[in-house]
């Protein structure tokens, strides 16, 4: 039982990660693929923050009388990663826009078809 409780977060993370992974490899729509990537990314965020959590730990803002804090390092890494993540997502989305203009579609099959017929 303690095993289940102790590892519960990791399993959620893995489930989310696999959902994201599945969307990335199985979805044929490019926007959906990006969403899959984002779900994958969020699962990694949750993994890091879970690792940084500590028994009875308060938010890492120093205060008198508080002894135990959560680990600030994963917070820093993830907080920057989130912003970088949206910037790279924007880059991916703009690629999709250009693909749509060039191929007239954002479905993988159609694009592959057109590539074949060239």
């Amino acid at each position: 039982m303690t095993t289940v409780l102790g590892l519960y977060n990791y399993w959620i993370v893995i489930a989310l990660m696999m959902i994201g992974f599945y969307v990335v490899i199985a979805a044929s729509n490019l926007i959906k693929k990006i969403i899959g990537l984002n779900i994958f990314q969020t699962s990694v965020f949750i993994l890091y923050i879970s690792i940084g959590m500590r028994e009875g730990g308060a938010a890492p803002i120093l205060k008198e009388g508080v002894e135990v804090y959560a680990n600030p390092l994963p917070h820093v890494l993830i907080l920057t990663a989130i912003v970088v993540g949206v910037a790279t997502t924007a880059l991916g989305l703009s690629l999709i826009v250009r693909i749509k203009e060039a191929y007239g579609s954002i479905e993988e099959d159609d694009i592959a078809e057109k590539d074949g017929s060239l």
Partner: peptide, 24 residues
Amino acid sequence: LSAPDVALTEAAIGAGVAPLLMLA
């Protein structure tokens, strides 16, 4: 999970800016 900084960022980005970009 006592990470308010991260929560603030995720709320503003994930629920605000990212879906907007996708919608656009």
